[in-house]
Nucleic acid binder design. Structure first.
Lengths: 171, 171
DNA sequence: CTTGAAATACTACTACG
DNA sequence: CGTAGTAGTATTTCAAG
């Protein structure tokens, strides 16, 4: 009981995560859990036409393998006081490793920062920030964004309408 | 049992969703569920220092009020065959209601489209698309993006490194 | 190696104080 | 909101394909 056992499907050694031996049932399970993970295991088992224990074992295997990163509650942005979404393009002063590292450390601490990515093209970073309204964004802009280290330029794209926002991957 | 009962805190009538009468315990519950919703109700109750039934009632109230939109499983992008993320800025030919509506309908059908928003600034839309690798993105670009209706220009920003990606709102 | 059936332990859920 | 009780589920054990 000391080590967690991973699927020894082939004889070769697999370090931590199996590539993706996903059969049809696994994909059906993942599709369901991506849409609604509050479903009970017995109901899930019925949907994928499996017995409850067999279904539960697959789910736990998918969790242990890292395929399922976690199960979380998604909140309504407006009700959570974060009804405004802003996408921000950032250009750094210098393209040095230190400059990037310093910026990344600071960017993650910006209130309401949901995403931050290094990108190709005319920007170095794209960030998405959730805040209450335009007033609170202006405050955040003046108090935090303008003080991010090593920044040459910041362009803000305010989101006027959210057409689509999902966490579901195609399977 | 015909109507769902909402919190009758004050005597006035509340249509469907109470604004946000969130006390400290509610916020603690939401913080926990945003981080990990696979926790059992008894464990959650212990964390927020409440009895199990009282905790469950709050959670169900938060769900009924729309504050909790849903509980979902988050998958590992790479393991799900969607290791590549691309942010796309779109400029439309004409800024007419018909043009916008037509584009939005088509954009949501693009394979792996995770987000699509109307924005201010030099672009009309920002989209984020998840795909397997650069080959599959090139295919998607040639087969789907170039055929989106009413598009004047598309700029692709490939994500080289994902610094931060969260679904948690600050509370 | 995976599945399915039965048995146990725990949890969610209801009614009441 | 908390306590107690009931119903249902999750989880283990074991046998079979």
């Amino acid at each position: 009981m000391s080590a967690t056992k991973v699927r020894p499907s082939s004889a070769s050694a697999v370090p931590a995560e199996p590539p993706q031996p996903l059969d049809r049932v696994d994909r059906a399970i993942l599709r369901q859990l991506q849409a609604d993970a509050s479903i009970s295991n017995v109901a899930l088992a019925a949907k994928v036409k499996l017995s409850a224990p067999a279904c539960l074992r697959r789910v736990e295997r998918l969790k242990a393998s890292g395929m399922i990163r976690g199960v979380v509650a998604l909140l309504d942005p407006k009700a959570a006081g974060a009804g405004m979404l802003v996408i921000i393009g950032v250009v750094l002063d210098r393209s040095t490793p230190e400059s990037f590292a310093e910026f990344e450390k600071a960017a993650q601490k910006v209130d309401g920062c949901m995403e931050c990515h290094v990108v190709t093209g005319e920007f170095d970073y794209f960030m998405t920030i959730r805040t209450r309204d335009s007033d609170s964004f202006n405050r955040l802009h003046a108090e935090q964004l303008l003080y991010l280290p090593g920044v040459r330029q910041i362009r803000s794209f305010m989101v006027l309408k959210e057409i689509l926002s999902t966490t579901k991957f195609p399977l």
